[in-house]
Write a protein that binds this DNA or RNA. Structure first.
Length: 334
DNA sequence: AGTCTGGCTCAAGACGCG
DNA sequence: GTTTCTTGAGCCAGACT
DNA sequence: CGCGTCC
């Protein structure tokens, strides 16, 4: 089974989570290796389960996202200051605030171009395909699913549904599968359950608060559902809304936001040829064990696992883990 | 009473030995 | 050529019906 | 499983 994965999101998680004593894993020259560690072993795991992953990297964010990104930058600056304060306190007291330093450090993490390039190089050596999306990765993933190039998108981000991704898998990482089952969402079932069509669903998501616009104060999940079901479009909702109780945000650019969901900038999936090839064991050893100082035995072992899984078409084993969820509670967005 | 929103916080991986 | 890019979940206060 | 370790 072929599955599309938002690479940036994975890298972000690895950079935050893969740590030892609060610090990222690094090679001797101080270069971070957490993202490579995570990508290498998780991908092997997936392939061993008969899954063929294709990683999708973000391109440039849409202009409309500027406001949201500015907010994030602001939060980052704030964390930076707090971090500095905590560090200084540490120097003074030599103990105590270590966990604060750690906490703020995590909040400062961002995925750089270099992280992405290194991950791509690794995937190349592993024989795993990847794509550079022109814009939002989730949009490109959704397009791949729609075109039948992959079976599903594996993500924690519900925006994939808004982009029209038919099948969405949550918690595809198996180490946690012990605690939490894999969830499989089918967009058509979700729409059925909500009794909405795709465009109405998009308008709903805009009201619930997407990255592209502000939302209406006082309107949360309950009211939003109510509104979309009675009026069926943002235009009608605005016409009929008591704007004294629920003021429409100034310069509310919902039409453009809607367009970004309906017609996102993507590469035509038909021009994309996903190929899973033999892993380059020697290349992997050279790359990971040379500069990055991974354990050679582990890397060779990983390469062999990739090779083996590739040549034994054990598919289907996975199906038993899947639970198909249609409409339980997609309100859980923000 | 109960309902709903909004602002706050936190947490986020994987391997392998015992 | 400079910048770049992820989220859900839970808990609690407070406004409103 | 729990927990130290991965780099």
């Amino acid at each position: 089974r072929k599955v599309a994965i938002d690479a940036s999101m994975c890298l972000y998680q690895f950079l935050i989570a893969v740590r030892s004593e609060g610090a990222q894993l690094t090679s001797v020259d101080g270069e971070t290796t957490s993202h490579l560690m995570g990508t290498f072993y998780r991908t092997i795991r997936l392939v061993e389960q008969g899954i063929k992953p294709a990683y999708v990297f973000d391109g440039k964010p849409p202009d409309l996202k500027g406001g949201e990104l500015a907010k994030r930058a602001e939060r980052r600056d704030e964390a930076q200051k707090l971090l500095q304060a905590a560090e200084e306190a540490d120097i003074v007291y030599l103990l105590g605030n270590a966990e604060d330093v750690e906490k703020f450090n995590r909040r400062l993490v961002k995925v750089t171009k270099t992280h992405a390039e290194e991950a791509k190089q690794l995937l190349q050596l592993m024989g795993i395909p990847f794509i550079d999306a022109p814009c939002e990765a989730e949009a490109q993933c959704a397009a791949l699913v729609k075109a039948g190039k992959v079976y599903a998108t594996a993500t924690e981000d519900m925006d994939a549904l808004t982009f029209g991704c038919n099948v969405l898998l949550r918690r595809l990482t198996f180490s946690e599968a012990k605690k939490m089952p894999i969830q499989e969402f089918h967009f058509d079932k979700v729409l059925e359950g909500l009794e909405l069509n795709h465009n109405e669903f998009i308008d709903l998501c805009i009201m619930l608060g997407c990255d592209y616009t502000n939302s209406i104060k006082g309107v949360g999940p309950k009211r939003a559902i109510e509104l979309i079901k009675t009026h069926r479009s943002l235009e009608k909702i605005i016409e009929n809304l008591d704007t004294k109780k629920f003021p429409i945000p100034k310069d509310w650019n919902y039409k453009q936001a809607r367009l970004l969901f309906q017609e996102p900038e993507i590469i035509d999936p038909e021009t994309i040829d996903l190929k899973w090839t033999e892993p380059d064991e020697e290349g992997l050893v050279k790359y990971l064990c040379g500069d990055k100082q991974f354990n050679e035995e582990r890397v060779r072992n990983g390469a062999k696992k990739l090779h083996k899984a590739r040549n034994t078409s054990t598919q289907g084993r996975l199906d038993t883990f899947f639970k198909v969820l249609s409409s339980p509670n997609p309100l859980k967005r923000k």
